[in-house]
Each structure stands twice: as structure tokens, then as C-alpha cells.
Computed example of a mutant assay.
Amino acid sequence: MLTTPVFAAGSGGGSSSNNPCNAGWVWDKTERKCVRQSSEVDQESLFEAGRSLAHAGRYQEAIDVLELASADDKRVLNYLGFANRKLGRVDVGLEYYRTALAIDPEYTLVREYMGEALLQKGDLEGALEQLAEIRRLCNGRGCSEYAELSGQIADYINKQDG
């Protein structure tokens, strides 16, 4: 079992509690301490811990935490898709992305990650469709999700041509 600390990242803007928790524990914002991961922990704390684990490359741990959270939270579904995709379970990841989009079709981050998953499957056309949707939703090219997926698509095309 890994014992590397987990830093529960904030949700952007303002200050957040970046306190370390060992594997199997999550930072509970309500209790203001590390607690054993369980469905009793508040939704936001589970999401933040799962997202932090996923970004740290600890994908299975992220999945274990996120599966305790609400299955109708688009952010949770997005990171379940992300972690599964990074573990090579691209089809599982795509199902999570589709479920998140059913909740919020304008969620550009899930569209970016879905485009990356489609590229992993060799579906350039599908990735370009996601890029077009992101562009529409961002009123042009003014969002990071567009720039990220556009770069991924360019790299994919360059590898195909090379």
C-alpha cells in the first residue's frame, strides 16, 4: 500500500486546504482533518482527493476514492473516465465521459478528455468533433481545453505523417 501523502487540491480561486493524507485517507473539509475514505466523507472532499490522486498518476487510488462519491456529479464521472483511460481502459473511460456529457453537454473539460480518449482509439474524426464542440462552447479558441485538445490532435497527426 502506498503511503505517499495526497494533497487535496482546491477547486480554483481562493485558498484551499492542501493538507497531506496517506493512502486510504482523504482530507475532509468539514472535519478539517484526514479521515478514512468512505461514502460518509462529503462529496467535495471526495472529488478533490480523487482529482488530486489522478493528477498525481495514482489512477487506481483515484478510482477507489471517486467511486465513493455521487455518481451524478459530472466532475466525478469525468475523473473516473480520466483515471480509467490512463490505466488503459479507454472504453470504460469513454462511458464515464458520455455519462458526464448526458448531465452537462457543455462541460468542456470532459470534451477535451473524451477527445484525447478518441485519439487513443485512433478516432481522429471523433476527436475533431469534440474540438469543434469546445470551440463552439468557448466562442472561438479562448479556452484552455481547446488549446490542449488542439495540441493533442496536432501531435497525433504529426505521428501519423511521420
Rank of each mutant, 00 (worst) to 15 (best):
S38W: 11
Q152A: 15
G13M: 12
A49S: 15
Q120D: 15
E95S: 11
L128H: 01
L128N: 10
E61K: 04
R51P: 01
E31W: 02
Y146C: 08
A56N: 14
E112H: 04
K159R: 15
N139H: 14
E44D: 13
L94N: 10
Q60V: 00
Y59V: 01
K33N: 09
I157Q: 14
Q60F: 03
L66A: 05
P20G: 10
P5V: 02
Y96I: 06
G142H: 11
C138Q: 06
S150H: 09
G81Q: 05
S150D: 11
K86I: 01
H55I: 07
G142V: 00
E40P: 00
Y97C: 03
R85P: 00
A100I: 12
P5L: 09
S70I: 06
N84Y: 12
K121E: 11
P20K: 07
G88I: 10
E48I: 06
L68I: 09
R141W: 10
G12K: 09
V65W: 05
M1H: 12
G126W: 13
K121Y: 08
A62Q: 03
V26W: 03
F82Q: 01
E112K: 12
K29A: 03
A69P: 02
C21E: 06
G50I: 13
F47P: 02
V90M: 04
G10E: 08
D42S: 04
R36G: 03
R51K: 15
S150W: 04
V6L: 15
L46I: 08
Y96Q: 12
Y113G: 00
W27V: 07
L109C: 01
G93M: 10
R85I: 02
R135F: 03
S39G: 02
G24A: 02
A49V: 05
N158Y: 04
A62F: 06
E133W: 07
S70C: 07
K159V: 03
K121W: 11
G14Y: 13
S70T: 11
D123L: 08
A127I: 06
M114S: 08
D64K: 10
E106A: 15
L68M: 14
N78Y: 07
E125S: 08
T99E: 15
N22Y: 11
N18Q: 14
D73I: 09
G115H: 02
I103W: 05
L128A: 03
Q152D: 12
R89L: 12
E125V: 14
D91F: 09
E148T: 13
Y107E: 06
L101V: 11
M114E: 07
H55A: 03
L109H: 06
Q37R: 11
Q160Y: 01
L94V: 08
V6P: 00
V110G: 00
E125F: 08
Y156A: 10
G93L: 09
V6Q: 10
F47T: 08
E133A: 11
Q60A: 03
L80I: 10
K159I: 02
A8T: 15
G115W: 00
Y156G: 02
G140P: 01
L149F: 01
G115L: 07
G10C: 15
E129Q: 13
T30P: 00
G162L: 11
E44M: 09
C143D: 07
D72W: 13
Q152T: 08
L119A: 12
R136N: 10
K29D: 12
L118A: 01
Q120C: 02
S150T: 00
G81E: 07
H55L: 15
N84Q: 14
F47S: 05
Q130H: 06
V26S: 04
A154D: 13
E133Y: 01
C21P: 00
